[in-house]
Deep mutational scan, measured.
Amino acid sequence: EDGINLEEIREFAKNFKIRRLSLGLTQTQVGQALTATEGPAYSQSAICRFEKLDITPKSAQKLKPVLEKWLNEAELRNQEGQQNLMEFVG
């Protein structure tokens, strides 16, 4: 629908959760960090719904690039050390 690749979103949601957990981050931490930079659309409950795919494809499509960018950045910081990650997450 609307050129939205559901399979891709499903895959990303699954990987997002795995990668988030491997960084040792909670949904709350991700939500707080993103709410600070991106606004309330990225709250803990939004992250939770995204991971469960309990949102419309359109919403998922909107969240995905922001979550992807944030997660990549978080992983980079983590490679530089846990301290850097925690500063990034705030």
Rank of each mutant, 00 (worst) to 15 (best):
E1K: 11
E1H: 01
E1C: 00
I4F: 14
N5H: 14
N5L: 07
L6S: 10
L6D: 10
E7G: 06
E7L: 04
E8M: 01
E8N: 14
E8H: 09
I9L: 10
R10A: 12
R10I: 10
R10N: 05
R10P: 03
R10T: 09
R10M: 09
E11V: 05
E11Y: 02
F12A: 03
F12Y: 05
A13K: 01
A13C: 04
A13R: 00
K14T: 07
F16P: 00
F16S: 04
K17E: 02
K17T: 12
R19I: 00
R20P: 00
L21E: 15
L21Q: 12
S22T: 10
L23P: 03
L23Y: 03
L23M: 09
G24M: 01
L25F: 08
L25E: 02
T26I: 01
T26C: 00
Q27E: 15
T28E: 15
T28D: 15
T28L: 14
Q29C: 05
Q29W: 01
V30W: 02
G31L: 02
G31C: 07
G31I: 06
G31F: 08
G31H: 07
G31Y: 05
Q32V: 11
Q32S: 08
A33T: 07
A33C: 12
L34K: 00
L34N: 00
L34W: 00
L34D: 02
T35N: 09
T37M: 09
T37G: 04
E38K: 09
E38W: 12
G39F: 01
G39V: 02
P40D: 12
A41P: 05
A41R: 10
A41M: 09
Y42V: 13
Y42F: 15
Y42H: 07
Y42W: 08
S43T: 08
Q44E: 15
Q44C: 06
S45K: 14
S45M: 13
A46M: 13
I47R: 02
I47S: 00
I47P: 00
C48F: 06
C48D: 15
R49I: 03
R49T: 02
F50N: 12
F50K: 02
F50D: 09
E51M: 01
E51T: 02
K52D: 13
D54E: 13
D54M: 08
I55K: 07
T56Y: 11
P57W: 07
P57S: 07
K58I: 08
K58Q: 15
K58L: 10
S59V: 14
S59R: 13
A60M: 07
A60E: 03
A60Y: 08
K62A: 13
K62C: 14
K62H: 06
K62T: 11
L63R: 04
K64A: 08
P65M: 10
P65N: 06
V66I: 09
L67D: 02
L67K: 02
E68Y: 03
K69E: 08
K69C: 01
W70I: 06
W70C: 03
L71A: 04
N72Q: 13
N72P: 07
E73R: 08
E73Q: 06
E73D: 08
E73W: 04
A74R: 04
A74T: 10
E75L: 04
E75P: 06
L76N: 09
L76P: 07
R77K: 14
R77P: 05
R77A: 14
R77T: 05
R77W: 05
N78I: 11
N78Q: 10
N78T: 09
E80N: 08
E80F: 11
G81S: 12
Q82G: 12
Q82Y: 07
Q83D: 15
Q83S: 12
Q83N: 15
Q83I: 08
N84W: 04
N84L: 06
L85H: 13
M86P: 13
E87V: 01
E87D: 13
F88D: 12
V89F: 11
V89Q: 13
V89M: 13
G90Q: 08
